[in-house]
Amino acid sequence: MAGSALRRLMAEYKQLTLNPPEGIIAGPINEENFFEWEALITGPEGTCFEGGVFPAKLTFPPDYPLSPPKMQFTCEMFHPNIYADGKVCISILHAPGDDPMGYESSAERWSPVQSVEKILLSVVSMLAEPNDESGANVDAAKMWRENREEFNKIAERIVRRTLGIPT
């Protein structure tokens, strides 16, 4: 079924090129390997990540879209739902059944009806509203809860770094 995975990825790439959500870009890093994508996500307005452009890597399984892709930020990130190595922990990237945290509703899980675009939009809203119960980054979660000012400062620094603006 790798052939159908390729075709579907190609269709999604075309869709995301011709009609992308604002502030989002995604596509294969190199078309020789269609299963490795790069994405840029803009931090949503009115949040501490506002204005930042965050690069991430998407890795698709050969049986996509039956299984979800993996997503990992390639820039420095400080967020309750993003591991220190940049891996994103969000329910849409988990197939129903494997629930590492045990409290995600299956409605927002991965299924072939979802798409790269939906994943990226979910990540945008995750940036805006962290889920401080699923502690991929415990320090970030704790700071988000207890010391929002400090958290905002760190976020600001990361945003500036992604834009190449000295802090």
């Binding site: 869709q15 090129t17 011709l18 009609n19 992308p20 959500p21 604002e22 502030g23 989002i24 870009i25 803009t42 949503p44 307005e45 798409s115 675009e117 939906k118 939009l121 945008v124 809203s125």
Partner: peptide, 20 residues
């Protein structure tokens, strides 16, 4: 689903973030 996404990123200045 493509048309539904504009709410997440609001356009305020002339510099557009639309990459289409």
């Amino acid at each position: 689903t493509a048309g539904s996404s504009s709410s997440s990123a609001h356009q305020s200045t002339n510099t557009t973030l639309n990459t289409a």
